[in-house]
C-alpha cells in the first residue's frame, strides 16, 4: 500500500471510530433511558396545537441559490490547484507549476467570466426577495 492510500486509510479509521462512538453512546442510552410509549408523544410537534395535514410551502429561491452555489463551488475546485502552482515546485525530480504572470492573467479572466454570471443573476433579481 502506498503512502497516499495509507493517509486516507487513516481517514477511514477515523470514520469508523466516530460511528463506533455514536453507536456506543446511543447503546448506553438505550440501557439507561426509560421507555413509556404514549400515542401523544409521537405526534408531530407544531408548538402544541394539533398538526395540520400536508406539507408546508417553501420558497423556490432556495433552489436557485443551490444552482448559483454549484457554479461557484465547481470553480473553487479549479482555483485551489492554481493557487499552489504560481511558484515552481519540484515533484519527483521534475519541476511543475511556475505559472507566474501567465497564471495570474488567466485566473483574472476566469474569475471575471464567473463574476459576469453573478452580475447576471444579480441583475435578474435572483438575490432580491420580493
Amino acid at each position: 500500500m502506498t503512502e497516499f492510500y495509507r493517509n486516507y486509510l487513516a481517514v477511514a479509521v477515523l470514520i469508523g471510530a466516530a460511528l463506533l462512538m455514536v453507536g456506543a453512546m446511543l447503546g448506553a442510552g438505550r440501557l439507561i433511558r426509560p421507555t413509556r410509549p404514549q400515542p401523544e408523544k409521537y405526534v408531530t410537534y407544531e408548538s402544541g396545537s394539533d398538526p395540520v395535514a400536508g406539507w408546508g410551502q417553501s420558497n423556490v429561491r432556495y433552489f436557485i441559490y443551490a444552482l448559483l452555489f454549484l457554479m461557484f463551488d465547481v470553480e473553487a475546485v479549479f482555483i485551489f490547484p492554481w493557487a499552489v502552482s504560481l511558484d515552481p515546485v519540484v515533484v519527483n525530480g521534475t519541476t511543475v507549476g511556475g505559472l507566474g504572470v501567465f497564471g495570474v492573467v488567466e485566473m483574472t479572466v476566469f474569475i471575471l467570466l464567473l463574476a459576469l454570471g453573478l452580475v447576471y443573476a444579480w441583475r435578474k433579481g435572483v438575490l432580491r426577495w420580493a
Binding site: Y45, W55, N59, Y62, Y65, F69, D73, A76
Partner: peptide
C-alpha cells in the same frame, strides 16, 4: 415536520452560501 423542513432549507441555503467565502 414543517418547522424542521423550513429550518433545514434555511440552513442548507446558508451553509452553501457561506461555504464560498470560506473557501
Amino acid at each position: 415536520n414543517k418547522f424542521a423542513l423550513l429550518g433545514a432549507l434555511r440552513a442548507a441555503a446558508q451553509l452553501i452560501a457561506y461555504e464560498l467565502p470560506l473557501l
